[in-house]
Computed example of a mutant assay.
Amino acid sequence: MTAGVDLGAPRTQAIRSDEDVVRVRQLVRTVAVAAKLSLVDQTKLVTAASELARNTLVYGGGGTVEVSTVHNDRRRGVRIVFADSGPGIADLELALTDGYTTGGGLGLGLSGARRLVDEFDIRTGVGEGTTITVTKWSR
């Protein structure tokens, strides 16, 4: 993951309900606009955040999200960290495969979110929960 410098206090949101997933989308959009991401990049980031927030709720049993504006030597970006204390992901490689689902959906949540952002890092272990960090950089 590329190092970035935080440009302000991170904003944290609990993810415990469907309404919280909506709040996450709104928060990410607000921070992406402030970071001056293009409309296309805002949409990609909000879409990825929505998928990951839904996964945090459904598969992780709820958790938190932390959204911050970062910058490196060349540009600004938005970093989002999703964390839960759920059961973890037993087979990460399989979970990141297009079409794989345990919930009856299209199986594009994790793999789709990974394609929509510039940086994607996932830390998980069975019984240890899951932390996913994504970053979208301005163009």
Rank of each mutant, 00 (worst) to 15 (best):
P87F: 03
N55Y: 05
T43W: 07
V46Y: 01
L37E: 14
G77F: 03
L39H: 13
D73P: 14
D73S: 15
D41Y: 13
L39F: 12
Q42G: 04
R79I: 02
G112D: 09
E93Y: 06
L94N: 08
L110V: 14
T102L: 14
S111N: 08
A83Y: 00
A49W: 04
A48T: 08
R29S: 11
L110C: 13
S111P: 03
V81S: 08
V58S: 10
V40D: 14
D73W: 08
L27G: 07
D98K: 11
V65K: 04
V46I: 09
G105I: 00
R79W: 01
T97W: 05
G63T: 12
Y59C: 06
E93N: 14
G86N: 06
R23I: 02
D98Q: 05
A48R: 05
V24L: 05
A83S: 15
G107K: 10
D18E: 13
R74C: 02
L96C: 05
V58F: 11
S38Q: 02
D73T: 15
Q42A: 04
D73Y: 04
S111V: 12
G105K: 04
L27I: 14
G63I: 10
Y59M: 08
E19V: 07
T97C: 09
T64F: 01
R74Y: 03
E19K: 12
V28H: 03
S68C: 07
T30E: 13
Q26E: 07
G63S: 06
A83G: 02
L45Q: 01
V81Y: 00
R54Q: 00
A95S: 04
G61Q: 08
T101I: 03
G109E: 09
G107Q: 12
N72A: 10
T64P: 03
V22T: 14
S85L: 15
V28P: 00
V46T: 15
R54A: 08
S111I: 11
V78M: 08
R25T: 09
V31Q: 00
V58T: 14
E66W: 01
L52N: 03
V67A: 08
V67R: 01
R29C: 00
K36I: 13
G86L: 05
V24P: 00
R76Q: 10
R74F: 13
Q42C: 11
G63W: 09
Q42W: 00
A48G: 08
L108N: 07
D84G: 04
V22K: 10
F82A: 10
V81T: 06
I89T: 02
T43N: 14
R25N: 10
D73K: 14
G109P: 08
Y100V: 13
A95C: 02
G109M: 15
G62I: 06
V58C: 06
A95L: 01
L108W: 11
G109T: 02
F82E: 02
V22A: 14
A49L: 09
V21W: 04
A95T: 13
E93C: 03
L27T: 12
L52S: 06
R29H: 10
D91T: 02
G86A: 05
N72Q: 07
N55S: 08
I89R: 12
I80A: 08
V70K: 04
A35S: 11
A32L: 11
E93W: 00
L92K: 09
D98E: 15
G77V: 10
E66I: 04
V67D: 01
S50M: 00
G61F: 06
L37C: 03
V58N: 06
Y59I: 11
V70C: 04
V21I: 15
A83R: 09
T69C: 03
V21F: 13
D41G: 02
V78Y: 04
T102D: 15
T56G: 01
